[in-house]
Simulated assay, not measured.
Amino acid sequence: MSRAQKAAETGLISPAARDALQTWLDHQRSLKGAAENTLTAYQGDVADFLAFMTVHKAQSQGLGALASITITDMRSWMARTRGPDVGPRSMARKLSAVKAFYRWLAEREGFEPTAVLSTRSPKFQKKLPRPLAVDAAKALIDCVEIQSERPWVSARDVAVLTLLWGCGLRISEALGLLGRDAPLPATLRILGKGGKERVVPVLPAARDAVAHYLELCPHPQMTDAPLFRAIRGGPLSPRAISKVMADARMQLGLPATATPHAMRHSFATHLLDAGGDLRAIQELLGHASLSTTQAYTAVDTARLMEVYNRSHPKAG
C-alpha cells in the first residue's frame, strides 16, 4: 500500500485531494512519460505534504483549502520535514514535486499558487561525478580481463565495461540488452529513463568485445533472454559488475568513485576533451537537459565558453 493510500485511509488526505493527486500522476505518466520510480517518489512526497497540511491546519485539506496555503505554512512544512534523514538535496526534491503538483492544480482549479511556487529550495552542494582518466579506464578493463578463472566470465565483464565506456550506456541499459540485439549493429536504439529513446553508435571495440563474449559463453543465446548471463545462466545483476569493478580498483589503487557509472561519466568527459559538441554528447547520453550533461562532464567555465564562442552564430 502506498503512502498516499495509507494517508487517505486515515483521513489525512481528503478524497478530492487524493483524486487530484492521482489525476496529476496519470498526467505525468501518459503525457510526460515519467518513469515509474519517479512517479512513486512524486506520489510519496506530495502525499506527505498533503497529510502534513491536514494536521498543521487541523482540518481536512480539500481543494479549496489547498488553494489558501501560505508562505508560513510552507515554512512550517519544510521545518517539520527537514531532519537527520532528510538533507537539503532530498528536501529540494520534495519541494520540486510539490511545486509541480501545485502548478498543475492551480491551472486546473484557477487559483494563484504564488505562496507555494515562491518557496525557496534549500541550497546544497551539487556533487560532480568523477570520471576516470583514459589510462585508468583502460587499466580497469585490462585488470577485469584477468580477474576470473572462467574465460567467458572475464570476456563478459570486459564486454559490459566496454559498452559503458565506449557507448555511454547506463549499467541498466547494457544489462537490458537481449539476445536479439547480437551481433551488435553499428548503432543501437536504446530506451532510457522515462521511455526516452536514443540512437547510440557502437564502436568496433565494443562490437568485438561482445562477439568474443558470445563465442565463449556456455549458455545458449535466446532471442528474448538477456544478452549478458550470470554464472548459472540467469540475468547478470548490476551488483555483480559493481563487485568486479570494486575488486579491480582495489588492485589498481583507484578511488571508490571508480564505479560502473564512472565509466559512463568518462565516456562523456573524454568525448568533450576530444572536441565533442555538448549538444551531441547530450543526445548520446539521453539527457533531457543540457545542464545535466554539463555536470556529468565536469565542464569548467573556460571550456564552456570555448564551446560557446565556437558554436554561437555571432562568434564568427
Results as ranks from 00 to 15, higher is better:
Met1Ala: 14
Met1Tyr: 03
Ser2Asp: 10
Gln5Trp: 06
Ala7Cys: 11
Thr10Phe: 14
Gly11Arg: 08
Leu12Asp: 06
Leu25Gln: 10
Leu25Ser: 11
Gln28Pro: 07
Thr40Lys: 15
Ala51Gly: 06
Gln59Lys: 15
Ser60Pro: 04
Gln61Pro: 06
Gly62Asn: 14
Ala65Ile: 03
Met74Ser: 08
Arg80Phe: 12
Gly83Pro: 03
Gly83Asn: 11
Pro84Met: 15
Val86Gly: 10
Gly87Pro: 07
Gly87Asn: 15
Pro88Trp: 03
Arg89Gly: 02
Ala92Asn: 10
Arg93Val: 05
Leu95Gly: 04
Val98Lys: 08
Arg108Ile: 04
Ala115Asp: 06
Leu117Asn: 03
Lys123Trp: 04
Gln125Phe: 04
Pro129Trp: 09
Arg130Thr: 00
Pro131Lys: 11
Val144Thr: 04
Ser148Arg: 12
Pro151Trp: 14
Val158Asp: 03
Leu163Tyr: 09
Leu163Met: 14
Glu173Ile: 06
Ala186Met: 11
Leu188Gly: 09
Leu188Thr: 08
Lys193Pro: 00
Lys196Cys: 03
Arg198Tyr: 06
Val202Asp: 08
Ala205Leu: 14
Glu215Thr: 10
Thr223Lys: 07
Pro226Lys: 15
Gly234Glu: 06
Met245Leu: 15
Met250Val: 11
Gly253Pro: 02
Pro255Asn: 11
Pro255Phe: 11
His261Glu: 05
His261Phe: 12
Ala262Met: 00
Ser266Gly: 07
Leu271Glu: 00
Asp273Lys: 13
Arg279Lys: 13
His287Ile: 05
His287Gly: 00
Leu290Trp: 07
Thr293His: 08
Ala295Glu: 08
Ala295Trp: 06
Thr297Met: 12
Ala298Gly: 14
Val299Tyr: 07
Val299Gly: 03
Val307Arg: 01
Pro313Ala: 13
Gly316Pro: 07
